[in-house]
Design a protein around this nucleic acid. Structure first.
Length: 590
RNA sequence: GCGCCCUUAGCUCAGUCUGGUAGAGCAGCUGACUCUUAAUCAGCGGGUCCCAGGUUCAAAUCCUGGAGGGCGUACCA
């Protein structure tokens, strides 16, 4: 208990001193550099007045990009006219480089969001006293408001010849290296503000992301879709199979979960008579982190009444190729050094044909699937048929899906929320869109038959329970005593033979509790174990509320989800999701 | 989760194999210079070599353990 208060106190103290104590004893590098800058701050404010180093409203500025456009293009080898001016300028920018020629002339390179330009501080244009003050107090990374005249230098460099300069904000902390920028990836992710100033490519990627997100909205709005906002906090997280983040609502004393998809509430809106809806927002999944996965990420899901898969295909391929052309000027992009074609139309590829082509197996040939899984040094034991197919597809087929394409006709068991194919009840009327071997979109002709939906969810729930029970038995480390083992076996056959089975049926929960006691030390599978224990896996429960909504009649509909982060990686040319997520997940600093 | 790699000045990096007084560039400070552009030139200051133990006369360097990070791989409808 006392530890809590001490820790809290230490934290508060650490914050109030700005972590100064952690910056090392007096005389260390950072502290010295900071002291120098504090000295310059004091000097500036002594002359210009208290608070003058922190600026004020500085409106009616022009972007540096626009300023550069005012300079006429110099012909090859043409010397610029010395006294030729191209108007006046007013800009707000950060000092990136400083080149003192003498006490009378200083060149700066300054940067704003749009780019860089040279500023000259010269005693023939700028008040002598002001020049003296700036020479003594101006540091790299200070923010300036500049007014001046636009003219080339003798060497032909577009330059703002300052007639007036104010400090908009002093930079007290030492900036990163001016030429190499900030290289350390940890620092770039943890201190993104430094990265954004130092590395233009990083800045550009996030500007592209903003344009991509607004482009998606514009595109959908123009087609009559309405943007909806559904709860992030849910009592049963559904619409996907993923482990959720759990939290607690004090007001009602209930556990809640962060959403893992927006699918279920959006479908309820279709029942409610809204015909074309979408939601663009953050999704949370308590799972792995790698170059294509972040625990929180952004999706856009959309649902259109009385449409189907065909409509969704046309929509997604048009949307993606439109965005690519608008943001990069081309529908072929480069990702991890390889060209990726995103231009519509995308080829439609049959799921089973792809399995046959790239893995050489038929989707119903279990022995062949097992063999391929073992070939990839994985263990097919305990996997369901769907898991096996999915495993082989992921390992052998996905690496080949580089150019944008639609994979269609997935086995229906893999797609519990999707209508069966009109010509083949074993297949789902579904597509997954791939590009650069990443799944970037997923769409269904949505299942709107509540009776069928209940069967599918029940089957999935039973399958999940049975799978877990089988793993419990097959795992040698469990060492279940003989009678408990028999009990589990009985439970598995009960689950598999009884379509109506629920976790509350018979003595199921007692058996589970006995297993739980027996597997306390069971670290190898604690992931699955924990899910079972807390009933966190949505496929371990049935969302009755959702089924109830369907019973009031949901129109037939096409639905689709797109991974915005991955799409952004492709269009901004970033190799890792961390380069398109502003503040990616990092372990907290000590 | 597993494998490989990294951690040295505010920043970018050498030095570690082969143990022997801690290095460079940028940034900072002092000075010179009226068209530079990673300005240049002369001089100066700046280090918990990630942490803890061990081996040794002696450890940034070798050994063990730990922390953080990167990349790959796995999990991920």
């Amino acid at each position: 208990m006392q530890g809590f208060f001490e820790e809290a106190k230490a934290r508060v103290e650490g914050l109030s001193t700005g972590g100064q104590a952690a910056r090392g004893a007096p005389g260390s590098g950072v502290d010295e550099l900071r002291q120098e800058r504090l000295g310059k701050l004091a000097k500036y404010e002594a002359k210009m007045g208290p608070g003058s180093a922190w600026g004020a409203r500085f409106a009616n500025t022009t972007s540096i990009e626009a300023l550069r456009a005012k300079f006429p293009r110099l012909e090859e080898g043409r010397q610029p006219e010395q006294n030729e001016r191209f108007g006046t300028a007013r800009l707000a920018a950060r000092v990136m480089l400083r080149r003192d020629q003498s006490k009378k002339l200083i060149f700066l390179t300054v940067q704003d969001q749009s780019g860089e330009i040279q500023v000259a501080l010269w005693n023939k244009k700028l008040d002598e006293a002001q020049l003296d003050l700036l020479r003594d107090t101006l540091d790299l990374w200070d923010l300036l408001g500049v007014e001046g005249e636009l003219a080339y230098t003798q060497r032909g460099e577009p330059t703002v010849w300052a007639t007036s300069v104010v400090l908009l904000s002093k930079c007290l902390a030492p900036p990163p290296e001016k030429h190499h920028g900030l290289q350390d990836k940890e620092l770039r992710y943890r201190h993104r503000h430094l990265d954004l100033v130092s590395n233009p490519d990083s800045r550009k990627a996030f500007i592209t992301r903003a344009k991509l997100v607004s482009g998606v909205r514009r595109f959908l709005d123009a087609q009559g879709f309405l943007e909806m906002e559904t709860p992030v906090l849910q009592t049963i997280p559904g619409g996907a199979a993923a482990r959720p983040f759990k939290t607690h609502l004090n007001a009602l004393s209930i556990d809640m979960y962060l959403r893992i998809a927006t699918e279920i509430p959006l479908k309820k809106l279709l029942v409610g008579g809204l015909e074309k809806v979408y939601e663009l927002g953050r999704i949370f999944r308590n799972e792995g982190v790698d170059y294509t996965h972040n625990p929180e990420f952004t999706t856009v899901e959309l649902y259109q009444a009385c449409a189907d898969l065909r409509d969704m295909m046309a929509l997604v391929e048009n949307l993606v190729s439109h965005l690519a052309r608008e943001l990069t000027g081309d529908t072929t992009v480069t990702f991890r050094g390889k060209p990726i074609r995103l231009g519509a139309p995308w080829p439609r590829l049959d799921y089973c044909e792809l399995l046959l082509k790239h893995a050489g197996v038929k989707a119903d040939d279990e022995a062949a699937l097992d063999a391929k899984i073992r070939e990839a040094k994985e263990n097919p034991e305990g996997m369901s048929m769907v898991d096996k197919i999915d495993e082989v597809f992921g390992t052998y087929v996905e690496p080949h899906l580089t150019d944008a394409c639609f994979v269609i006709n997935q086995p229906v068991e893999m797609s519990p929320l999707c209508k069966a194919h009109p010509q083949d009840p074993k297949k789902a009327d579904r597509f997954e869109a791939f590009a650069a071997s990443m799944e970037i979109a997923n769409a269904y002709s949505e299942l709107n038959d509540p009776l069928e939906q209940r069967k599918r969810l029940a089957a999935q729930m039973r399958e999940t329970w049975a799978k877990f029970m089988r793993e419990v038995m097959d795992e040698p480390k469990t060492e279940l005593p003989g009678e408990l083992r028999l009990e589990v076996q009985g439970l598995v056959s009960a689950i598999e033979s009884n379509d109506e089975w629920q976790p509350e049926t018979g003595s199921a929960m007692e058996t589970l509790r006995a297993v739980e006691v027996q597997t306390k030390q069971w670290k190898l599978r604690d992931y699955f174990y924990e899910r079972m224990q807390r009933l966190e896996d949505p496929s371990l429960l049935i969302d009755e509320d959702f089924l109830h909504a369907l019973e009031h009649g949901m129109p037939p509909a096409g639905g689709m989800g797109i991974g915005i982060d991955r799409l952004c990686m492709l269009i901004a040319g970033c190799d890792s999701i961390r380069d398109v997520v502003l503040f990616p997940l990092m372990r907290p600093e000590k």
